[in-house]
Design a protein around this nucleic acid. Structure first.
Lengths: 211, 211
DNA sequence: CGAGGGGTTGAGCCGTTTCAAAAAGAGTGG
DNA sequence: CCACTCTTTTTGAAACGGCTCAACCCCTCG
């Protein structure tokens, strides 16, 4: 979530950062590719990374938007199940999987960090599952906006992703997302300042709509 | 998935079974409850367990159907995010979370088993996510049936769950699930022997439909 | 035999998608 | 700074897939 450096927060040296190198990615750059051999694990240092998966016939589902501190590709076996791409400029800590596994075998704090990170991903994914399975369009859009607002702890949120990205995250079409945003604006719950920035005018109403 | 005892397969003694006790549950019995304090982790020994989550207004989403060997509640923090219930008679290995964490701190094989189990859940959940976000009703139903058939490696599959369970797993209504099953039967892809048992007549067509 | 619970089927409705076009930005070169 | 183009977003109208509501069926059980 929004924890920048979970381990450092407890006064402990972050056990992961020493295991890999930080790489910079520019907007749209591919961090790893679906189907590619999964020999690395990633942690977002700065910026936002989107993970997505393509079906054979071209339908896309976005797994999540990952912010600083989030670990990626924990779930992969032989091959990456997801493509990860930078939304805007990003820095990502890249760790070789073998290095990480070796370290997890020696260092308990590493093993626990991995387990905890996996558990957090699982929890987030469960929420996503309910969104897609049981919520209406307006609920999904309201929920994702509320989530972003909570993450930055502000009423003004910047959207690093396109409407298409939002649609593919929410299991909707771009048109439906656009309509829901317009609807939220019409009912004075939010107000767009630019296409990619909005102000939550009525956070309570937004949470209510998110159900 | 269908791995009965991943560790024993490699000739190693299963590191988890010694850490808890096996309990028996009868049909419909609750293994753990959403919102209840998450002080245990579970592994299905025999039978099928369904995990589900209820929204405040009563909508239900089933997370998964868990078969022998599957670990449950790995994802939970303070409270269980899901309710787990027995579908038919079940045996479940119940392990205290504190015991497990302590053991994971000492025994690398335990820590790795946990990580691997989490990774597997994560992967399975990603598939589920695409189903809910991007697939049509017929594709979802075909996919879950194909999945069951693959699991038991037979063309005759027993459904331990009700139509309502299937609907809540697939993000559909009971009527739609029923219609899709009828449709599959009309097109000779499957054939119901009883309400809860069917024969896959054309496995290839089923996979095709699952997309 | 009657009651009750799951499952199926039908008709009509509604929310989301689809297709199409206009509007608003963003980027480029003069 | 303005014209021009290209892309993204918004809006509109119509079609469609899945949902809702309701009746019916089929078992099981008492």
């Amino acid at each position: 979530m929004s924890i920048r450096n979970p381990s450092a927060a407890g006064g402990v040296i972050d056990p992961l950062s020493a295991l890999g190198e930080v790489r910079a990615y520019r907007d749209g750059a591919e961090v790893c590719s679906q189907g590619g051999s999964a020999d690395c694990v990633y942690r977002v240092v700065s910026g936002v990374v989107r993970t997505s998966r393509l079906t054979e016939d071209g339908r896309r589902q976005i797994g999540d938007f990952h912010f600083a501190g989030d670990l990626l590709a924990l779930d992969d076996g032989e091959q990456h199940a997801f493509t990860a791409e930078a939304l805007g400029a990003c820095e990502v800590l890249v760790i070789r999987r073998r290095t990480l596994e070796a370290q997890a075998g020696q260092d308990i704090t590493v093993a626990q960090a991995l387990w905890r990170a996996s558990a957090e991903r699982l929890r987030k994914m469960q929420g996503h599952l309910i969104q897609l399975g049981r919520k209406t369009a307006i609920e999904r859009v309201a929920a994702v906006l509320a989530q972003f607002a909570e993450q930055v702890e502000r009423d003004v949120i910047d959207l690093p992703m396109s409407r298409q990205d939002l649609a593919d995250y929410l299991g909707l079409t771009i048109e439906t997302v656009s309509r829901m945003i317009s609807q939220l604006q019409a009912s004075k719950v939010i107000r767009l300042t630019t296409l990619r920035q909005m102000r939550i005018c009525d956070p309570q109403a937004l949470r209510q709509l998110a159900a």
